[in-house]
């Protein structure tokens, strides 16, 4: 319990014009923990993800990241090259649209290998071997290592993006609606894959989703956002089974039972 947080944010606020996107948000993430951020469109959850990962700046507040040597870094005060290096190695970002992360003109194996090369690997044989291994781990036929991503289905592209992200063994991965826009059968496979990889590799995840079932399946803890504010936070099953805040009760009661 004395273990220290991997990522901590205090008092994050951000306005887009007059619209509050984040209102005094605090967040903590411990190593190996999956934290879901839920809420409807426009609640500020993706903005929070972008601020925590240093992609955009808040008007006020601070975000600390603890590196493997236990040094603290103020994410928004880091020099740009250091932040980029972090995003290439220790961190990963899984976008809702895999095309935002993949290079569509580079082979599947190249997409996975590129991140290893960016992290400093130079041995071609090892890089290709790692790429093939990771394609298998995300259930893509290794025979397709030289195929272009444009020949892949939406579900395969998302799995390729996950392989590309995890190949450098990041300690912290940000995920923005990773199963959004996929067929339910494809979604189930992806969820199971994310669940088992995250548990096996002990990766900490900040997961943005509007789907409470996805949060229940993957997350240890949950934060509920409404109009830029965190209205409720706690254990995932506690928040979903015994919601305290009016907005959380509305969200939970609005889910259709299949």
């Amino acid at each position: 319990m004395t273990e220290e947080t991997l990522l901590s944010a205090r008092g994050l606020s951000l306005h887009f014009g007059k619209v509050p996107a984040l209102v005094n948000v605090d967040a903590d993430l411990w190593p190996g923990e999956v934290l879901a951020v839920v809420g409807e469109s426009g609640s500020g959850k993706t903005t929070l993800l972008n601020v925590l990962s240093g992609r955009i700046r808040a008007d006020s507040g601070v975000t600390w990241y603890r590196d493997p040597q236990s040094r603290l870094h103020d994410v928004h005060a880091m020099p740009a090259p250091a932040l980029r290096a972090l995003h290439r190695s220790d961190w990963g970002f899984v976008h809702q649209n895999p095309r935002d992360n993949l290079r569509m003109s580079v082979s599947a194996g190249g997409n996975v290998g590129e991140r290893l090369m960016a992290a400093g690997n130079r041995h071609y044989g090892n890089i290709r071997e790692a790429a093939i291994d990771w394609l298998a781990q995300v259930e893509i036929d290794p025979a397709r290592v030289d195929d272009m991503p444009r020949t892949f289905s939406g579900g395969m592209l998302q799995r390729l993006q996950i392989a590309r992200t995890l190949v450098t063994h990041p300690r912290l991965v940000f995920m923005d609606e990773p199963t959004g826009g996929l067929d339910v059968s494809v979604q189930a496979r992806l969820l199971d894959l994310i669940r088992s990889l995250v548990a096996r590799l002990n990766i900490a995840v900040v997961l943005v989703t509007h789907d409470l079932a996805v949060a229940r399946l993957l997350a240890h803890r949950i934060m509920v956002m409404q109009r830029g504010e965190v209205v409720e936070t706690g254990l995932t099953d506690q928040v979903l089974d015994d919601p305290q805040h009016a907005y959380t009760q509305l969200l939970v009661s609005s889910v259709l039972q299949a």
């Binding site: 319990m1 411990w30 189930a188 496979r189 199971d192 669940r195 240890h220 254990l235 506690q238």
Partner: peptide, 25 residues
């Protein structure tokens, strides 16, 4: 919450009436 997660992992088991199935597992 993190303490509760640890207590559940090591000490406190719960058998609900219905199995919440995870797809594919």
């Amino acid at each position: 919450p993190r303490t509760v997660v640890q207590v559940r992992a090591k000490t406190l088991g719960y058998v609900s009436q219905f199995l919440r199935v995870v797809p594919r597992v």
